[in-house]
Amino acid sequence: MIKNTGRKLLRNKSAMFGLMIILILLLMGLFAGRIASHDPTLVDITNKLAPSSKEYPLGTDQMGRCILCRLIYGIEISMFTAIKVTFIILLVGVPLGMIAGYCGGIADNLVMRLADIASTFPSTLLALAVVGIFGPSLDHLVLVFIFLWWAPFARMVRSSVIKLKETEFVMAAEAAGCSRRDIIMKHIFPNTLSPVIVYATLRIAAVITHIAGFSFIGLGSQPPAPDWGVMLNDGRQYIDTHPGMLFWPGLAIVIVVFAFNLFGEGLNDALIPAEEEMAVVKETGDSNE
């Protein structure tokens, strides 16, 4: 199973391409301080809106900041944050789904009602409300995302746990005298993971677009942070004269989202048997977008 998955994934060219882009971007983000030659927030009005040059490969913005450097530093804000957020979402959603599915009864009801509540909130509205009360900040946005997006994971895990509970191998584990902990951790949990991993990968892409989107309308990261959304907003006024300011951050977002989607779909092919292919993604995916 694991062997096969790896081999299938390695053979999937588009997935590998996606993974490569992701890895390169992550490394760039990690070593942003070494790669980028300029401070991303250093204002140099004398050099504003400079065209592409050796020192500023993508030119500078209206404050004279290096666009390329800002993009590189932006990786941390968008990709790293998105990965962290998704990780926390998993930490919340997966155990809740396991509890709901395995215990059933009151626990199930409670978790599922909470999930219902979480998924009925329109994300934009909630974000606006939170930002309105606590003030605009990336941290507040992140809390909103976690609050909203643990629910589909919990549902997904719960439904696979319920299915798995009835399978012969779980029953066989009980017959073989396994403890409850072993049954859950060794037999049920690993078999719920495939769709979760696939969906989480796709979810990272969604979080990236959301962060950029909210920052663009001024509810997320605040200038002068080198957030891609903020950069897009800055570029808005210069669209006629300096389209690069709008184009480069836009391209960065497209590439990242594209890479995660490629990788996610490759994972889906590799992890999930043919009959169920894409079913998971179709069922649960993109309902919050």
Binding site: T167, A172, A176, K186, P190
Partner: peptide
């Protein structure tokens, strides 16, 4: 659990009879 070693079951050999991992 204490007495399960004395009773066992042979399941139908369906695809689900064993943990795939």
């Amino acid at each position: 659990r204490k007495i399960r070693d004395r009773m066992q079951m042979i399941f139908q050999s369906s695809a689900n009879a064993f943990n795939p991992y």
